Simulated assay, not measured.
Amino acid sequence: MNTPYPSAAAPIWERPEPQPRAAPVPLTREKIAATAIRLADAHGLDGLSVRKIATELGVGPMRLYDYVVNRSELLDLMVDAVYARIGESGQHSDWRGAVLAIAHATRLATLDHEWFSDLLGGRPHLGPHALAVGESTAAALSRAPGVRGIDDLQRAVGTLNAFIIGALRREVTERRTARSTGTDESAWQASLGPYLTRQLETGRYPTVARLVVDGAHLDAEETFHRNLTTILDGITGHPGT
């Protein structure tokens, strides 16, 4: 069974790198993760395998098991490499600026590595870079007005994470659907517009009709930012604080 954390081995973060070997090519966990990320970017997680990574690196598949015990550890390395990028979002003296920077950096990293959205909300991300991003986020939220104790902080972190995970998964899903069907918004409107018009004209869905007819087409980045600020306003209890 391919267990995430084998009892026979410590977590990958606490195991030293194997001794370097020059032949046939030098390897490191960082190099393996970078190669895996390139393959996942191109083919998704379903197209990722130890054999493909080994072929890309010019080594035998068994050599990779000196560095990662199983696929779960490989995904851990990949995820933490993305968190390393997120962690470069910069330092902010005010709590709100820090949270906004981390959230937007997470969105940009996810759009560049769509497979990352598939791993958000799963088992905990416990690599050093993931923990650093989590620390920065929690530390920033702990300084927010309205967060007066550990219970408030837990709720704030949970609410923020739930929004980010849901928003990014939806945005990535919409991008994938558009690519797989080969349709854009105008084509979708042409194919389903008449049906939707007939349904709305029944008068049974007045609020939906208002959203469809009067609602503006919203930019994905702007929508993410506006909804994010709404979440932060709710945490503080004071818009713009």
Rank of each mutant, 00 (worst) to 15 (best):
A105T: 06
R123C: 07
D118F: 01
R85M: 07
G90E: 03
G127M: 11
G127L: 13
L100Y: 01
E88H: 09
I86R: 02
L108A: 10
P124A: 04
L120E: 14
Q91S: 11
L119V: 12
D112L: 08
G122N: 08
G121E: 14
E114F: 07
L111V: 11
S93C: 02
T106G: 08
A109E: 13
A105N: 06
L119T: 10
R96E: 04
R96A: 07
E114G: 08
D118N: 14
D118S: 15
W95L: 09
A105W: 02
D112Y: 00
T110R: 02
R107I: 12
L126N: 11
E88D: 11
A101W: 03
G90F: 01
G90A: 06
S117Y: 10
H92E: 01
Q91T: 05
S89V: 02
G97A: 04
S89D: 14
L120I: 01
V99N: 01
H92Y: 08
S93I: 13
G90R: 03
R96I: 06
F116Y: 13
T106E: 14
A105G: 13
G127S: 10
D94E: 10
G87M: 06
L108F: 03
G97D: 01
G122S: 06
W115D: 15
I86F: 05
F116E: 07
L108M: 13
T110K: 03
D112E: 15
W115R: 09
A103E: 05
G87L: 05
I102G: 07
S93D: 11
E114D: 13
Q91W: 12
G121C: 14
L126C: 06
H104F: 10
G127Q: 13
G87A: 12
A101E: 06
S117I: 12
W115G: 10
S93W: 00
R107H: 03
R85S: 13
H104P: 00
L120C: 07
L100S: 06
S89M: 02
F116G: 07
T110A: 12
H113I: 10
P124H: 06
I102M: 12
T110F: 02
R123V: 01
A101M: 04
L120S: 08
S93Y: 00
S89E: 04
R123N: 08
L126T: 12
A103S: 10
L108H: 10
W115K: 13
R85W: 08
H113Q: 08
A98Y: 00
S93A: 15
W95A: 15
L111F: 15
S89N: 09
L126E: 13
L126R: 12
A105K: 02
P124W: 07
R123L: 11
L100R: 14
L126M: 11
G122W: 03
A103M: 03
R85H: 14
A101K: 05
L100W: 00
G122I: 02
R96D: 05
A101Y: 03
A101L: 04
L120V: 00
S117R: 09
H125P: 08
T106N: 14
I86E: 09
A109K: 02
L100Q: 14
A105S: 10
Q91G: 10
D118T: 15
H92P: 02
P124I: 05
H113N: 15
H92R: 14
G87V: 01
H92K: 04
A105F: 02
W95M: 10
A109H: 02
H113T: 11
D112T: 13
F116V: 08
